[in-house]
């Protein structure tokens, strides 16, 4: 066999490999998102059509569910609700990244008395069902006179109160060898510079993940805002989506609800898609080729 045919063989094998991967990816993608595509179709249908047929193509495309859905039956349109959501979500994301990174840094790179105990507290706050802390928390915020404001939703994130993210960042930070820190110390970095210049860049994928999750989960969170906010003018999208869903009180235009649910997914989707790109940027530092 001459070199060229070996080369061809390798190339062919590579092509087959790639084809296989695409087939697998596409099949899984279809299973994953067919239901969403069906929802997209449903947003154009009437109630009778949504529940009466399982095909996803609507009889006719009618954008009115989007127009009406955006207007809502309330005093405000979705423009207001989206702005409100961002007012809650953006500070939450920023605060979470900063406070959780600092906390994770403390837990992974320092020794101090009570460290194990404190970390135990971080983890164990995840174990108690939120249902039973709802009333005490509510009463606490009432006593702070901060009800019907965004403070109860945002302020805790400034203090690293979301253990999921602390725990996650701890796990990632522990994956980074300490030799990097030591090298930096020799270069004259102080502890804060080590964090900012060495660890944070290396943890870019993890930090992006925190941004993504906090954004998406906060966009979706509906119960907390519902409990703390009483003014409709302050409601975020997640509550607005459920403003009309009470079948016992009469007719619910499900197409509008679905239409708006899909629109509400968009910010998260766009963010996810662009963040996924920056995952790729990180590929130069990691990942398998081909």
């Amino acid at each position: 066999m001459d070199a060229e045919s070996v080369n061809n063989k390798v190339r062919r094998k590579h092509t087959i490999n790639v084809v296989w991967r695409y087939v697998l990816l596409i099949i899984t993608a279809v299973i994953m998102i067919y239901p969403i595509i069906w929802l997209l179709g449903a947003s154009f249908k009437s109630n009778a059509e949504i529940f009466g047929s399982i095909g996803f193509l609507p009889k006719h495309i009618d954008w009115s569910s989007y127009v009406k859905g955006w207007k809502t039956g309330t005093e405000y349109t979705f423009t207001t609700y989206f702005l409100n959501s961002f007012k809650i979500v953006i500070p939450k994301v920023i605060f979470t990244v900063i406070s959780c990174t600092l906390t994770a840094y403390a837990f992974t790179r320092f020794d101090f008395p009570g460290k194990k105990f404190f970390f135990g507290i971080v983890i164990s706050t995840l174990f108690l069902p939120a249902v039973v802390t709802r009333i005490p928390l509510y009463i606490m915020w009432r006593n702070f006179h901060l009800l019907d404001s965004y403070v109860p939703l945002i302020l805790p994130t400034l203090f690293a109160q979301e253990s999921f993210f602390v725990f996650m960042l701890v796990q990632f930070m522990r994956g980074i060898p300490k030799e990097y820190d030591e090298a930096a110390i020799i270069d004259g970095c102080n502890s804060f510079q080590i964090l900012i210049k060495i660890l944070v860049p290396m943890m870019k994928p993890a930090i992006i993940t925190v941004v993504l999750f906090q954004f998406i989960w906060s966009m979706n969170d509906f119960l907390q805002p519902l409990i703390y906010l009483s003014s409709v003018s302050k409601f975020p999208v997640a509550i607005a989506l459920k403003m009309a869903t009470d079948a016992s009180s009469g007719f619910v235009p499900w197409n509008q609800t679905i239409a708006m649910s899909l629109i509400a997914l968009l910010p998260s989707l766009i963010l996810f898609f662009s963040a996924s790109k920056s995952f790729v940027d990180g590929m130069s530092a990691g990942g398998i080729k081909g």
Binding site: L102, T103, A106, R109, F110, D111, F112, F118, V166
Partner: peptide
């Protein structure tokens, strides 16, 4: 302990 300083926000919170 420098670590406690970084932990301070969490401790307060």
């Amino acid at each position: 302990n420098m670590g406690l300083l970084y932990l301070l926000p969490w401790l307060i919170g």
